[in-house]
Write a protein that binds this DNA or RNA. Sequence first.
RNA 1: AGGCGCGUAGCUCAGUGGGAGAGCACUACCUUGACACGGUAGGGGUCGGCGGUUCAAUCCCGCCCGCGCCUACCA
Length: 745
Amino acid sequence: MNWDVQSQTVLSDLEVESEENAQGELFDFAYPVEGGGEIVVSTTRPETMLGDTAIAVHPDDPRYMHLHGKHALHPFVDRKVKIITDAVLVDPKFGTGAVKVTPAHDWNDFATGKRHKLEEINILRKDGTLNENAGPFQGQDRFAARKAVKAKLEELGLARGSKVHALTLPRSQRSGTVVEPIISTQWYVRMKPLAEPAIAAVEQGKTTIVPEHWNKTYFHWMRDIQDWCISRQLWWGHPIPAWYCNACEHTHVAQQAPSKCDKCGGALRQDEDVLDTWFSSALWPFSTLGWPDKTPDLARFYPTDDLETGYDILFFWVARMMMMGIHFMGEVPFRRVLLSGLVTDERGDKMSKVKGNVIDPLDVIQGATLDDLLAKAKNNGAKDSGLDYLRKTYPEGFAAYGADAMRFTLLSYSPQTTKIALSIKRIEGYRNFANKLWNAARYVLMNLEGSGVQATQVRPDAHCFANRFILSRLATTILTVHLSIDEYRLDEASLALYHFVWQDFCDWYLELSKALLQSGDSAIVAETRAVLMHVLETSLRLLHPMMPFITEEIWQRIAKTEALQRTIMLAPYPEGGRDGLTDETVEREMAVLQAVIVATRAIRSERDIHPRLTLPLTLRCDDVPLRALVTREQEAIASLCKATVSVEALAGSAPVDNSATSVTEGVTLVVPLAGLVDDGKERERVERQLQKLEKDLQAIDKKLGNAGFVDRAPAEVVHKERERKAELEHSCVQLREALTKLKAT
RNA sequence: AGGCGCGUAGCUCAGUGGGAGAGCACUACCUUGACACGGUAGGGGUCGGCGGUUCAAUCCCGCCCGCGCCUACCA
């Protein structure tokens, strides 16, 4: 058994954690051999020598041939220690090649003891002090006894030196103390028969683990499974259903307490121990639903669809629920297991009360001062270093970021990451997102005031470019969200919504809508209002599972038709269908307009032209559909660039003195700026743009000059490269012309 | 020791066999009637290293280096 002397309970293998590379000491000492001579053994736990009942050597080791079958004399207790040969336990190359054997306090020695029928002498009491078998060391704590034993061996001249030794220390997950192997009688569950069907269930796809790569870990553990010690010496838990006869010690195991001993009729006492909490937890999928009664709940919810949890309890809980579920219910408890990463602190360290780095979600949601954080950590037993970490990392404590930001942040991490290093900065970013959504809603509601427009959850028809654009982007987003959710990629779904709301809706559409709302054309205004309402309302429904509070709050403020539900919680989640209608043409056209607008703003920014000044912008283009597009949407461009826009053909157009030029998407932008022009700066800007394009062009030329590429790559790939080349060449020509012009002036 | 996974911008991380991305941080300008928890424009990466497959590799394969986790062992 693994014994935790602090909690004074048995632990299962899974509850023992390894401390790697602990600094230990390998201590050598000599046992005097009966009839003369000595044999030197090594140990990292000198106190265990009090329980030694043998010394093992390798049967073929020539150094010890003469000692086979002899006895050593124990220096502290009246005991002869047999010298045995054992090829399993002993590695003749390690240390002295002679191993002290303590069957009662070491896993390997226990097995050796069984092979050689050695006496098992327990030297430990439950609290970690030594018992009466320890002779003169009785009553000492295990670590004090270690020192005392060493000192006494030195005194007797039996110490043979020591060296530092790195070892892995088994520590209790519960208390952190070093775990002691002891011999004790406890209840175990034989795991092989339970594991086999649980392995088969995953192999046959009855239960799927997501992400899939955890299958390997699951199988690896299940196939190499150890029996499970389920007794715990704790006051909290399910009592073990075992009864012992006071008279004859016969053991009874039953669902109902037996009244007297089956064998002798004597009085019974129940086992004082309780079941491992994980044993009880393993029953959770059905024990919570009324099992063993066949309740309607059990029929309805067993098996369930999805279980979501951290990968760190795949064995503790998931695997055991699988085994118990299959055993007791005859069926797997869930169809899918979704494993997420472990939430850690910002450094990536596992949260622990002792380290003081446990982040209480409520503090993040409601806000907390540094003092609040320190008080809570201290109360949970944090060490000073942990408190220092808090002081250093959160000098201002937490602002109140809200439950929506917290939830959205957790959703934004990829499911395949093993570590979720919860960053306050990231939470703050999503808090800002919630604020952005709130302000966008304010804008929409403000512009709908008194209009009588109601949310209908029916996609309005739209003719205006901007309205068609946002409806198409909404449709694309709905499709992306559905695809992502179907693949359990909530990170992708949340990212798609974040980008849609912030970029498409706020940065582009709301800005475009301003011109439409002020157009004075009542048909356009009505259409725009309907679209604003529809997109906002649909976005809220899309976001609701990820940001339940703010979406409900806004939704309640929206005017709605009678037919709609009272709460967004009951509103249908947006589906493809009519709302999933994307419009590739409008999205492609928008890409052109966006490029033109961004290029114009870049000119403004590079030239330090104040945002309040209106730019005179001329767009030149020979491509007829393209020119038609920018002509049709010149008011939109004007609005977003704060410019007056004119459009003309490129061919035959007159050069403009003192102007800034840019080329994008086949459109040449000219901004005449008499009096404001700094030719040097402009030349730099154009040269930089030209250089970039020429570099791209070079790469494409190299590719197209490669016969292997042209011959063997798919035709559409080659075609695409040729198109790009033409486009780049055109742009370069325009820029070179602009450069010549600048140099000439 | 065995198994699994990871090395991509200063940080945290997405991603793909054919033009390197996001958020934060950073720089400049801007308090414009939704929003400064904001807007606009920028800078920043030999995609860990070396080979191989391929017309083409950040992506596929092999080896190496570094890191993390799990399992086992450690007198």
